[in-house]
Design a binder for these strands. Structure first.
Lengths: 117, 117
DNA sequence: CGAAAGCGTAACCTATAGGTTACGGGTTTG
DNA sequence: CAAACCCGTAACCTATAGGTTACGCTTTCG
């Protein structure tokens, strides 16, 4: 998912589709890169579910589907949300002044959460 | 910016740093890939401004800085926001039934390259 | 019905992202 | 003060992302 957004061309396509549905050709016309390149960008967007397509005659109309963005958006807001209980500062001190031996004694771990005091 | 989030390892690092600041070594310990690999991921995060570092003795403590995420978050919410004026459906019809000649008469656009973020 | 439009796919090329090992420079420790 | 730590960087290798041209299929038009 996130990789689909990583490319500037794809981000631009999504922005365009937010305003109105567009055919593959219409989209390609607005870029300088070749049409097959756009076609493959559209495929990435299709595979990631960010875009749906309807075949109308010999044209293929693309429209935006922002649904799959929800998890990413949640994660981002989670990151942006400030931690109000001051765990950050406490953790900073413990982290800074902890010695190597102390750290080693706990061994490598998955997501350990013990600094929540 | 968006490219910094595209990698799962970096996303995981950011998630870890949301809970508490961590030294480079601590971070590396939680992954199976080599420490230099983590070091370069941290560099990408540093260069994108998502992470700040304080040198404490021979250790380098990393902490999260979600500030640079704001533009991306805005863009994403913009995409997710529903267009209430029904422009979508109207646009769909015009798009579907418009002929090639009509489209051509508008000429190619110079939209390109605004999302270089 | 043959020609042209619209669009996806295949084959190919190049840049780069991400991994590894080897190394060096500042800092702490015994 | 020498040895061990912590951590970044350099050099190198490989997979893949993203671009191009060539091609084929389906649909429309004269």
């Amino acid at each position: 998912m996130a990789v689909a957004i990583a490319d500037p061309v794809r981000r631009h396509i999504l922005t365009m589709l937010r305003a109105e549905p567009l055919s593959a050709g219409d989209i390609a016309q607005r870029f300088t890169i070749s049409r097959p390149a756009i076609s493959r960008h559209l495929r990435v967007l299709r595979d990631s579910g960010l875009v749906r397509d309807d075949l109308v005659g010999r044209r293929r109309i693309y429209r935006l589907d922002p649904g799959p963005l929800a998890p990413l958006l949640d994660w981002l807001t989670g990151l942006t949300t400030v931690d109000r209980w001051g765990r950050h500062l406490d953790a900073l001190e413990t982290e800074v002044y902890r010695t190597r031996r102390e750290r080693r004694s706990r061994g490598p771990a998955e997501h350990r959460r013990e600094h929540t005091a």
